[in-house]
Write a protein that binds this DNA or RNA. Structure first.
Lengths: 205, 205
DNA sequence: CAATAAACTTACCGGTCGGTAAGTTGATAC
DNA sequence: GTATCAACTTACCGACCGGTAAGTTTATTG
């Protein structure tokens, strides 16, 4: 059993992703991150120079993994309709498997209110453009304006992220049993909304 | 012209809502809030005892205003279908008019990961239950399980909040013109998704 | 005019923050 | 065997944090 030799930088990114997702930028100190790995905050400063730079590396890491998922969709699905279905399934699966990504993306959206204008390198841009391209190719929306296509795309991504981050709260409100039911029907119900079907295969009372 | 005499407590709540929405709980200090009103942080301590209590008052304030919106829907719309339409229009309008509410609700969702279990008084509970009741009454979902109804409700609220908080970022990515187009078609497109129509009245190229 | 109470203020405290500076350690290279 | 370098450490700094304690100001009331 060999220890997977993760580079020190990647170890910090991995750990920081988790903490930033849970508590946000201001809710996490460098000492918190380093402490989780049994190190001191100065080891982070050594690798990343500043806290901002560490945060940037975390965002870039998520963006890269999301782009990889999309490339996968383009490679596998035969036509536009199948591509959108594959996209939604993969995105949904990704965000349910990695709720931290959904949490951090949503936080990034919230915290970038001021930064959005100043910072012209927006790490998620490529991912978003590719997502819109998939929606735009679908028969439902090929004839629509780019604005409509972008709005639909955003609704879909938003629904997926929002559902993922709501999980703990939903559990507290309605209990684990009901939320686990909700999770099962979530992606199918989203697909039905997209295809305009009448949701007949969803469970009835 | 009389100055509307807002109580000191309400002035703090109003100001804190804006700052918490913009920068989050840990991103805002008591001195920040008081400074905006030309006062010192101790004046906040005097009124609210702790920072946590101030934050709680802000959340309670939002919850109360949302419940008022819902009561309105129940009072006005004649049947279940019209109620859901009125609900979505009002919710969408509310979140577009008051993006801070959408931002803070989403932040609350994110930050309550740990608190959700411990804190059994969850201010948004009544609002959420009423929202689910409206969705459950709609012909599309009356026959579905409570879990499905809750999932649909959450997707709808999520889409609205997510779109509202995305506004600054979307502007930075695609420009004001396209985003303003998106905003116009947003609620109608959501209604079309709900009613299962084919989006014929949405603008085409 | 004295008493009271709301709505503040200044002064201060222990603790934590991000970041600088100057070592220390252990492995590799020549 | 010593020079080099990555990957750390300890020690420290000024700024800021939430919160306590003890006044001060202002308006109202008997």
């Amino acid at each position: 059993m060999t220890v997977t030799a993760e580079s020190p930088k990647r170890k910090f990114i991995h750990c920081a992703l988790r903490l930033f997702a849970e508590r946000g930028y201001f809710g996490v100190s460098l000492a918190d991150v380093a402490g989780e790995l049994g190190l001191t905050k100065q080891s982070i400063i050594y690798h990343f120079k500043t806290k901002d730079a560490l945060y940037g590396a975390v965002i870039a890491d998520i963006a890269q993994r999301l782009e990889a998922t999309i490339d996968d969709v383009f490679a596998q699905a035969p036509d536009a309709r199948a591509q959108l279905e594959a996209y939604l399934r993969k995105l949904g699966q990704h965000m349910l498997d990695h709720p931290r990504d959904a949490r951090l993306i949503t936080r990034e959206l919230l915290d970038n209110l001021d930064r959005a204008q100043a910072d012209n390198t927006w790490y998620m841009r490529r991912f978003l453009d590719q997502s819109v391209a998939i929606v735009a190719a679908h028969p439902n929306w090929t004839s629509k304006t780019p604005a409509v296509q972008a709005a639909i795309t955003y609704q879909l991504i938003g629904a997926v992220c929002y559902f993922s981050i709501s999980d703990p709260t939903l559990n507290a409100i309605w209990g684990r049993a009901r939320v686990s039911e909700m999770t099962e029907v979530f992606v199918p119900s989203l697909l039905d909304l997209v295809e305009g079907e009448k949701r007949e295969h969803l469970p009835s009372k």
